[in-house]
Design a protein around this nucleic acid. Structure first.
Lengths: 73, 73
DNA sequence: ATTTTTGGTAAAGTATACTTTACATTTGGT
DNA sequence: ACCAAATGTAAAGTATACTTTACCAAAAAT
């Protein structure tokens, strides 16, 4: 919520590319709009935990393989 | 976001008890209000991914040890 | 038994996640 | 070069996460 210089990162674009899945497809599988996927990929805002799990499910990986919260840049 | 009969579960209360940490203490460590912790423990709403990570950090465990998303009840 | 701490509810306000629509730019295929 | 698909931006509206305050009940401490 707070910690300076801790960053949420995500590997959605990479995982999508590996699976040749478009943003539209991922959005549909995760049950959200394409805008939502774009905004999360591009870090416009951070998803809810629920959506984070849905995205991981849609990509068929663990949530920790998609998102990380770590120090530094 | 959607899937019927998939549930978000959390072990916050258990992990807190193990560590003899009060809701107030956890809230402070995670940087949110006590109300927020209560509401999440009692499933009034689901946290943001960021807060989920902060809570895991505060409890000194991996996010997957705190929260799970699974089928059934 | 009384005080203090802890967990809980409620309600009103603010911040932000998410949707929808519309349009612009880039990329890939032919 | 052209067309279609994929990615991106913007903006206005809705839903929900989170804050703050105040107050109540149960449990623990003294």
């Amino acid at each position: 919520m707070r910690d300076q210089n801790w960053h949420l990162t995500n590997r959605i674009a990479v995982l999508r590319a590996e699976r040749k899945m478009t943003q539209k497809e991922l959005a549909e599988k995760a049950g959200v709009s394409r805008q939502t996927i774009i905004s999360i990929e591009n870090k416009k805002y951070t998803p809810s935990l629920l959506l984070a799990f849905e995205i991981a499910n849609a990509l068929e990986v663990e949530i920790t393989e998609v998102f990380a919260y770590r120090e530094e840049e």
